[in-house]
Measured scan of single mutants.
Amino acid sequence: RLIESLSQMLSMGFSDEGGWLTRLLQTKNYDIGAALDTIQ
């Protein structure tokens, strides 16, 4: 599930440099909407 969510976020133009996006998705239970809300 992480790989699916991460690949979708990467395709939106986000980077996972340093693993920050992986950690964010894990804390949000791989919910892309919740991750995007946090980023904004």
Rank of each mutant, 00 (worst) to 15 (best):
A35K: 03
Q8W: 11
I39F: 05
L25D: 04
M9G: 01
I32F: 08
G13L: 06
I39T: 04
Q40R: 11
E17S: 08
L10M: 10
E17P: 08
Q26F: 12
I39S: 04
E4N: 10
L24A: 03
S7N: 15
E4D: 10
A34Q: 12
I32Q: 04
R23P: 04
S11W: 10
D31V: 05
D37T: 12
G18Q: 07
D31A: 07
D37P: 02
Q26S: 12
K28P: 06
G19W: 01
A35L: 10
Q40F: 15
M9D: 00
S7H: 15
L21N: 01
Y30A: 05
T38A: 14
R1E: 07
L2Y: 12
E17K: 07
N29S: 10
A35Q: 03
A34R: 09
E4V: 10
Q26L: 13
D37F: 13
R1F: 11
L2N: 05
E17A: 10
L6K: 00
L21T: 01
K28E: 09
L25E: 02
L6V: 05
N29T: 03
I3A: 12
A35F: 08
W20P: 00
G19M: 07
E17W: 10
L21G: 01
Y30K: 04
T27Y: 14
T27D: 15
A34P: 05
G13I: 07
D31N: 11
T22H: 02
G13V: 07
M12K: 01
G33E: 14
L25K: 02
M12I: 08
Q40H: 13
R1A: 09
D16M: 03
S5P: 04
N29K: 10
L10S: 07
F14Y: 14
L36K: 04
Q40W: 12
G19L: 04
R1N: 08
A35E: 02
I32A: 06
S7I: 13
K28T: 12
G13K: 01
W20T: 03
L2T: 04
F14E: 01
S15P: 08
I3W: 14
I3G: 08
G19C: 12
D16H: 04
T22D: 02
L36M: 09
L6I: 10
T27S: 12
Q8T: 13
S5G: 10
L10H: 06
T27I: 14
T22E: 05
Y30F: 09
L6P: 00
S7T: 12
I39V: 07
G18A: 07
R1H: 11
N29E: 10
T38P: 00
N29L: 11
Q8S: 08
M9T: 01
E4F: 10
S5N: 06
R1T: 13
S7L: 12
R23Y: 04
T38I: 14
M9Y: 02
S15Y: 10
L24R: 00
G19E: 08
L6T: 02
L25F: 04
T27A: 13
D37Y: 13
S5L: 13
S5Q: 03
M12G: 01
T22R: 11
D16E: 05
D16Y: 04
N29D: 11
G13E: 04
R1W: 11
S7W: 10
L24S: 00
G19D: 07
W20R: 04
Q26A: 06
N29G: 10
S15E: 07
Y30S: 05
L6D: 00
S5R: 08
L36A: 05
N29I: 08
L25A: 01
D31G: 03
M9C: 12
I3Y: 14
G19V: 00
G13F: 06
R23H: 13
L24M: 06
G33I: 14
G19T: 02
E4Y: 09
A34I: 09
A35H: 03
G33W: 13
T38N: 10
D37K: 14
I32R: 02
S7G: 09
G13M: 02
Y30T: 04
R1D: 13
L21Y: 01
A34D: 09
R23E: 14
M9V: 02
L24I: 07
N29A: 10
L2H: 10
L25G: 02
I3Q: 11
L24K: 00
D37H: 09
G18R: 07
Q40V: 09
S15G: 06
L2M: 08
R23Q: 15
G13W: 09
T27P: 03
S15Q: 10
M9W: 05
N29F: 08
A35P: 01
G13H: 06
S7R: 11
Q40E: 12
R1S: 11
G13N: 05
A35R: 01
F14P: 02
Q8I: 15
S5M: 12
L25Q: 02
N29Q: 09
G18T: 07
E17D: 12
L24W: 04
S11Y: 08
T27L: 14
A34Y: 05
E4H: 09
L6E: 00
T22V: 06
K28F: 13
S11A: 13
E4G: 03
K28Y: 11
I32S: 01
L36W: 08
R23V: 13
K28L: 15
D31Q: 06
T27Q: 15
I3M: 14
M12H: 04
Q40T: 10
Q8G: 06
L2R: 05
Q8D: 03
L21I: 05
K28N: 13
E4T: 08
S15F: 08
